[in-house]
Structures are given as structure tokens and as C-alpha cells.
Amino acid sequence: QEEEKEIKRLAKKFNASEEEARRAWKKAGGDPETAEKILKKKG
């Protein structure tokens, strides 16, 4: 599933848990760029 792959990639890229990545993904409405910004800010 595309979403799961994206979440795993985000978690790995930002050294975050999949739970954090999933939360960022949901907050971003499934937009990878926005999710990255959220995780970057958090990191």
C-alpha cells in the first residue's frame, strides 16, 4: 500500500517512529511534502 510505504520512508528519513510519521501524514492530509515539513519542525 502506497500510504504505508510513504510512512515508512518518512519515519526512516527523519529518524522518527512510524507512529509519529503516521500522525504527521494524517495531519498533512496525506500530502508527503507537508508531512515532511511537520516532521522536520518536530525533529
Rank of each mutant, 00 (worst) to 15 (best):
T34A: 13
S17F: 03
A28M: 00
T34Y: 12
K27S: 12
L39Q: 01
E18Q: 09
R9V: 06
D31W: 03
K26F: 13
A11M: 10
K5E: 15
Q1W: 13
K37M: 08
S17R: 04
A21S: 04
A16I: 13
K41A: 10
K26W: 13
G43S: 06
S17T: 14
K13N: 04
D31S: 06
Q1Y: 12
A21I: 07
A16W: 03
E3D: 14
A16G: 02
T34I: 15
E2R: 09
A11N: 01
K41Y: 14
E36A: 13
K13P: 01
G29H: 12
E20Q: 07
K41V: 05
N15K: 09
E20K: 04
Q1P: 14
G43H: 15
A24T: 02
P32V: 15
S17H: 05
L10A: 02
G30V: 01
N15G: 11
I38F: 09
E6R: 06
E4V: 07
K37W: 09
Q1T: 11
K8D: 08
L10R: 00
K13H: 06
R22F: 08
S17E: 03
E33L: 11
K5C: 11
G29M: 09
A11F: 01
D31A: 04
I38Q: 03
I7K: 00
A21D: 00
A35T: 06
I38T: 03
E3V: 12
K12I: 13
G29Q: 10
G43V: 11
T34K: 15
A24D: 01
K13E: 08
G43D: 10
A16R: 06
N15W: 04
K42G: 15
G30D: 02
K40G: 10
L10D: 00
E4S: 09
K40R: 14
R22W: 08
A11I: 07
W25M: 07
D31G: 02
G43N: 09
S17Q: 03
E6H: 13
G29L: 10
A24I: 05
K27T: 14
K8P: 03
E4G: 05
K5I: 13
K26P: 01
I7W: 08
A11V: 06
K8W: 09
R22I: 06
K37N: 08
K26Q: 15
A28F: 00
L39T: 01
L10W: 02
K8T: 10
T34S: 10
E2H: 11
K26S: 10
P32T: 13
A11L: 04
L10K: 00
E3R: 06
A16C: 12
A11Q: 05
K8H: 11
T34F: 10
A21E: 00
E36T: 05
K27E: 15
K8Y: 09
R23E: 15
E4R: 07
W25G: 01
A21T: 06
K41Q: 11
R23D: 15
G30S: 05
K40H: 14
I38K: 02
A21F: 02
T34M: 15
N15A: 08
E18L: 13
P32S: 14
A35H: 00
A11T: 05
G29R: 12
E3F: 12
D31P: 01
K8G: 06
K5R: 14
K42I: 15
E3A: 11
G29E: 10
W25L: 12
A28V: 02
K12E: 10
N15P: 02
K8L: 14
K12W: 07
A35W: 02
K27H: 12
G29I: 04
A24M: 01
W25V: 03
E6I: 13
L39R: 01
A21P: 00
